[in-house]
Design a protein around this nucleic acid. Structure first.
Lengths: 256, 256
DNA sequence: GATTAAGTTTTCCTATAGGATTTCAGAGAC
DNA sequence: GTCTCTGAAATCCTATAGGAAAACTTAATC
């Protein structure tokens, strides 16, 4: 009968494997990552549900988790808003935190690494070389993704779940990439922030910082693979300070 | 008209100020805190919604956030489960992390504290004295709550949002209290864990550890109020090591 | 006794209606 | 022209019922 045909609205989503709300969570995170949801903009639940072709329920669950992650903010009875780009203070604060935990993680990783970890670390350094071959347009994204995996991997090899999850929850690479994209898309209005991100961009983009960062990663990886804790700590410390300088040379003075 | 009266089904919930899903989040967290939801047990969304007399929607949002907090785990297509009590490894890992960030936070707090912070810190130390007056049954809870506020306050005074939120997200005091309650309610079966918690309990309960902890807090508070960064760092370090020993004297050897 | 098959339960998701609150616009008063 | 107040629209939040898919349980057959 003709009736049956009209009942079926969307036949494409039959073989689903994972849980819908998890997929939606990743999709919304990707939308924030890629500035499809602009920093500071309102996030309308209804609109998002319609756009992603799901009902409100999984969207709400995803937004609740994203709020817990600090990627969006919730104002009661007003709605969700994507968090703003990092201010210079927040940027410095974030790197201060990384300086606190990551050199420690590198040191522990050098102590505790096993053969599985060594294989993973070597593999990640291979993929870094590949990232350098990309064109400039894609290179920043590829390098950011490698950087995220590299630092996350070391946090895990350190053996400390507390440190690893604390690091992951900073979402530092997502924040860095958002700053980069904001500059590229000329989306930034606020005066002081403009200058900050402009510098970030110029510094990174025109000075072969990609190669530099990978060279530093190589040193760190070598120290960890050699099981040399002290060197692992100091090279990681230097690397984070170096990228802080790379991204924001003027930011150094803020924290004594 | 009589019609109007029959329309009203539940007149009690008219003047609500905050958002329901936030309230539910806190209520479920409290249920975990107080072992109303036992460690490792299943968490049924429907049952919870009926029990708390709300619909599923706010329960779902609350559970999504609690999962992000690491307080409950979600198995796709199976449901939510309350996380187990901390194992000895996780316990050590947690305190290792605290040793990493809290001495730093105390040092920074000593540098950056202002008059508002000083007032808050003095006030918190006053409330600690009051907690000691409680009977043994309530004293542990009162002291745990003071301890949570004290450490959280210092993290905030340090001026680092990254450190403060990383500390808060450990939910360390919730975990400690769950261990305490599990022992008190004789809910623990697993052999090695039994012994671990038994020691924890004995040590804490029969040795005036409450007074001891507060004495240590006093030293830390004094150093911060005197703006003595080095002392603040060292006393905080000593305090965390001391409470690690207090809670689990046998755990010390695990981490070199 | 082991394996397959059907039925039941559980869980996840959808859909929709309606109440509550904020925001914005326009009319009227000063 | 500016301010205040009222009303309407938009948005968020809640409630409830029901359908689909997976997991678990039970029963029957070989």
């Amino acid at each position: 009968m003709a009736k049956k045909q009209s009942i079926v609205p969307a036949p494409k989503r039959s073989p689903r494997r994972s849980v819908l709300s998890d997929e939606i969570y990743e999709m919304i995170k990707a939308m924030i990552f890629e500035h499809e949801i602009a920093p500071g903009s309102r996030v309308n639940i209804d609109a998002l549900a319609v756009e992603l072709e799901v009902s409100q329920t999984p969207v709400r669950e995803a937004l609740a988790r994203l709020e817990s992650d600090g990627l969006i903010a919730k104002e009661p009875l007003k709605g969700y808003t994507a968090t703003n780009l990092l201010s210079m203070e927040e940027f410095n604060d974030l790197f201060q935190f990384r300086l606190l935990i990551e050199p420690w993680a590198a040191e522990q990783a050098a102590r505790k690494i096993d053969s599985t970890g060594k294989t993973a670390l070597k593999g990640e350094m291979q993929s870094a070389k590949a990232a350098l071959k990309f064109k400039v347009d894609d290179q920043f994204q590829a390098l950011t993704e490698h950087d995220a995996r590299f630092h996350t991997l070391i946090a895990h090899i350190s053996g400390s779940n507390s440190v690893a999850s604390a690091f992951e929850r900073t979402h530092c690479h997502l924040h860095l990439f958002r700053l980069y994209m904001a500059n590229k898309l000329h989306l930034i209005e606020s005066e002081s922030r403009t200058q900050f991100v402009q510098e970030l961009f110029e510094q990174y983009y025109h000075s072969g910082s990609g190669q530099l960062a990978i060279k530093e990663h190589d040193e760190i990886a070598k120290a960890i693979l050699d099981q040399n804790p002290k060197t692992a700590r100091s090279t990681m410390h230097a690397h984070i300070e170096s990228s802080l300088k790379r991204f924001a040379p003027s930011a150094k003075e803020v924290n004594k």
